[in-house]
């Protein structure tokens, strides 16, 4: 089987979730990568070094500067004439593009796979991860998004694939990019961090959130996450949200501070290796999944913990 993986990049390097996607693709067959962008040669060169990659296709042009699905999906659909499976990481960009490709190919997409069980058989979470479905596709081609935390990352070096420039399908003329407000963040990225400290509604307001959670995170070189309640209330930006409808994370250590443990939150973090919960309510559901729990007032516990580390 010949697979095509859409590469998420920042024009210089390849994002981690793509490396996990390559691992999933390699279980199906030969791995080809597609780098789309404007001025993306360096990213394509980096992609060519990923271990196990047979070929890199590079489509460079103004229409591809901002990953607009209207422009990228037709290009992928065209390339799928020569490939059997298309895979994208289940990031917001991947989730935006892949279903558009699937519909163009008249294929039912398999979202957010956790494992490859056979040529056409995969597992995926449903109901916020409260059930795992094993599904088999009957389509001639496969369109798949891959949950990054479920697959090891392919080595980013060791490969020496050829980069082939391809001509694009141009601007569909349906949409344009206006701008982005990306959160500046010196901390590790949530989805690849080894340690995450997350805060919930108990943190009161944005200032208290920062004054309480950030020093602990800094001590541990951890990324910062949040519950939906904390994000909705404006304590933290939207891209901090962990959960069914936010980011899916699986760090070595997840520290939940003042988070009750609603199923939608657990859906995003319950595959963490070690879960530590700090909550004043000893019956909070978070303790049912926590490896280590500490019952008490976070406003005394967290500063004390920070100072003793």
């Amino acid at each position: 089987m010949k697979t095509l993986v859409w590469v998420e990049h920042d024009n210089a390097s390849v994002k981690d979730a793509t490396l996990s996607t390559v691992t999933a693709a390699a279980k199906l067959g030969e791995v080809h990568l597609l780098v789309v962008g404007q001025g993306a040669q360096a990213a394509a060169d980096a992609a060519a070094q990923i271990a196990g990659v047979a070929k890199v296709h590079l489509a460079d042009g103004a229409a591809y500067a901002n990953n607009l699905a209207e422009n990228v999906a037709p290009l992928i659909a065209q390339l799928m004439g020569d490939h059997d499976a298309f895979l994208a990481p289940a990031t917001t960009n991947g989730k935006n593009i892949a279903p558009r490709v699937a519909a163009l190919l008249d294929v039912m997409q398999i979202s957010d796979i956790l494992s490859v069980e056979g040529e056409k058989t995969f597992t995926r979470p449903i109901y916020a991860g409260n059930a795992i479905a094993t599904v088999e596709s009957s389509d001639a081609k496969l369109v798949i998004t891959v949950r990054g935390t479920a697959f090891e990352k392919a080595a980013s070096t060791g490969g020496s694939a050829a980069v082939e420039a391809i001509s694009g399908t141009g601007d569909a003329g349906l949409s344009s990019f206006v701008g982005a407000e990306l959160a500046k963040n010196e901390r590790p990225e949530l989805t690849s961090a080894k340690i995450i400290v997350s805060g919930g509604r108990a943190l009161k307001d944005a200032d208290t959130f920062q004054a309480t959670i950030f020093p602990l995170a800094d001590k541990l070189h951890a990324a910062v996450g949040a519950s939906r309640a904390a994000v909705d209330a404006g304590f933290a930006p939207n891209d901090y949200q962990v959960g069914q409808t936010g980011k899916i994370v699986a760090p070595e250590i997840y520290i939940a501070v003042g988070i009750s443990g609603a199923i939608q939150h657990l859906a995003g973090m319950k595959d963490s290796k070690t879960i530590i919960a700090i909550n004043k309510d000893e019956d909070a559901p978070i303790f049912q999944v926590a490896d280590i729990g500490l019952v008490g007032d976070l406003f005394t516990i967290v500063p004390e913990l920070t100072s003793k580390l």
Binding site: G173, S175, E181, D239
Partner: peptide
């Protein structure tokens, strides 16, 4: 709402 924050697009 995208991974790094927010992004605005204009659609016809």
């Amino acid at each position: 709402e995208v991974d790094g924050g927010l992004e605005t697009v204009k659609l016809s």
